[in-house]
Nucleic acid binder design. Structure first.
Length: 439
DNA sequence: TCTGGGGTCCTAGGACCC
DNA sequence: TCTGGGGTCCTAGGACCC
């Protein structure tokens, strides 16, 4: 054991994470929420995706279906809000910009978390530095955060978790300040499930081997774990021991696939409505794809009935659609996808979700040509009329809001659109909805 | 009435080739 | 009588993350 963390001094990683991020965003613009327990709900107001401290204390779990907790909500006067991703995304960008000033390399890991490389601060006051980050984000953006510091990403995640759970750390936990026996003992107080990369399934199987805590996992026989659980879990153990297996990625790599899907507010058996929703998903996904300058030659379309209603007949077909030469042309993709919907559709089922996945993504410049195509689709000099149209479409929608310019086959009625009954205003991204300060 | 959406990586198994 | 072995590619599915 003495050698397991001997090289930990070589790198320093901080994880900065927003506390109850969506709830914090909502509270920032509606101070009345400060004194109430608050829940932010998923799309369609279906389940819990962010909870204030008070809600966590009441034992309401992440992911709980809203209709299971109706009574608790009423009893404790919990405020429930539809999710407002425009708001969260905007505040996220501000938070990331502030955090990024505190280290030479930042990896934005999710909407509310980023890693910072602090390796060049060896021997300096890291806790003080981290407190400064927290204070500035709080002051400039308004979001409370916690910071975990350690020699690897996995340990930094765990340190962050400790900082959140143990008030005595005052929001910052630095594992590199602790000596090894103390750290191992501390980890004995946290479940294996709290470790990044240990999910529900692995946790159950680890328990069968007597591995219950983060400490147990750190001390486990990694060769034996590797055969039973695979290389991913083996890497997790290495990271717990201070051996970095996951470098920081400052530049987000291009997406390898892009998915757009959504449950309906109300199930439908109407093939035209299914086609409308799929048209919308294709155009959303294609716009994202063009933003990263990629093209694709294959897409998948799927329909799903509601799996939570086993008493109804179930149908969840998928179609894989080949497009020929790689393309980023929404029109081409829409017509192929809609054809696929008509092929997949069976009358008599209540569909409650559709989706489109663009797979096979590749940079536009280096694409393979279709051997049988009449003419190269995208390599022609300059831009084609179709490309200019896509460009116009994207810039209009960027400037004036999604859906300003769209395909006729997306329909206008949208009786299937999702439910968002309690959404807060777009405080930071729409002029008409800016908060007003009163004297 | 009522259970999200968007990703990544890994593995197993089948088809096919030499 | 004997019934291989190694490699690639593709797909589906599982597990994990937030």
């Amino acid at each position: 054991m003495s050698s397991t963390r001997s090289n930990r001094s070589s790198s320093l990683v901080a994880l900065v994470d927003g506390n109850n991020f969506y709830v914090s965003c909502e509270r920032l613009f509606d101070p009345r929420l400060e004194t109430r327990p608050v829940i932010v709900m998923s799309n369609n107001d279906g389940m819990v995706i962010s909870r204030s401290q008070e809600v966590k204390a009441l034992g309401i779990k992440m992911g709980a279906p809203m209709h299971h907790i109706r009574d608790v909500i009423k009893k404790h006067r919990i405020a429930t809000l539809s999710s407002n991703y425009g708001l969260y995304g905007d505040l996220s960008q501000r938070m990331m910009a502030v955090v990024g000033q505190f280290g030479p390399v930042q990896e934005i890991y999710s909407i509310d978390e980023s890693f910072l490389d602090l390796s060049d601060m060896q021997g300096r006051d890291l806790v003080g530095h981290a407190q400064e980050i927290r204070q500035r984000v709080r002051q400039w953006v308004g979001i409370p955060t916690c910071v975990g510091i350690a020699s690897t990403k996995t340990l930094a995640k765990l340190a962050n978790h400790v900082a959140k759970k143990r008030p005595e750390f005052e929001g910052v936990c630095d594992f590199t300040r602790m000596n090894e026996p103390d750290l191992v003992e501390l980890l004995g107080g946290f479940a294996a499930r709290d470790v990044w990369g240990v999910g529900r399934q692995s946790d159950a199987r680890l328990k069968e081997l007597g591995i219950r805590t983060a400490r147990d996992l750190l001390l486990a026989d990694s060769a034996a774990i590797s055969t039973r659980f695979g290389v991913v879990m083996e890497r997790t153990i290495s990271e717990l021991r201070g051996i970095g297996c996951q470098p920081l990625e400052a530049v987000a790599p291009d997406k390898k696939q892009i998915l757009s899907s959504r449950s309906f507010g109300r199930a439908t058996s109407d093939v035209e409505e299914l086609a409308e929703s799929v048209t919308m998903h294709v155009s959303t996904a294609a716009e994202k794809m063009r933003r990263q300058d990629s093209a694709c030659s294959t897409l998948q379309v799927f329909l799903k009935t509601n799996p939570f209603k086993p008493e109804l007949p179930q149908h969840h077909p998928t179609a894989t659609v080949r497009l020929g030469a790689p393309t980023d042309d929404s029109l081409k993709m829409v017509s192929a996808a809609v054809r696929a919907v008509r092929g997949l559709y069976r009358p008599g089922y209540k569909y409650h979700k559709t989706g489109v996945i663009l797979i096979d993504l590749q940079p536009k410049k280096v694409q393979q040509l279709d051997l049988f195509a009449d003419a190269p689709a995208l390599v022609s000099a300059g831009t084609t009329a179709r490309e200019r149209l896509m460009h116009t479409l994207d810039s209009v929608n960027r400037r004036s809001g999604r859906g300003t310019m769209r395909f006729a086959s997306e329909g206008v009625d949208h009786r299937w659109r999702m439910k968002r009954e309690k959404v807060s205003p777009a405080y930071t991204t729409q002029w008409e909805e800016l908060p007003v300060a009163r004297a």
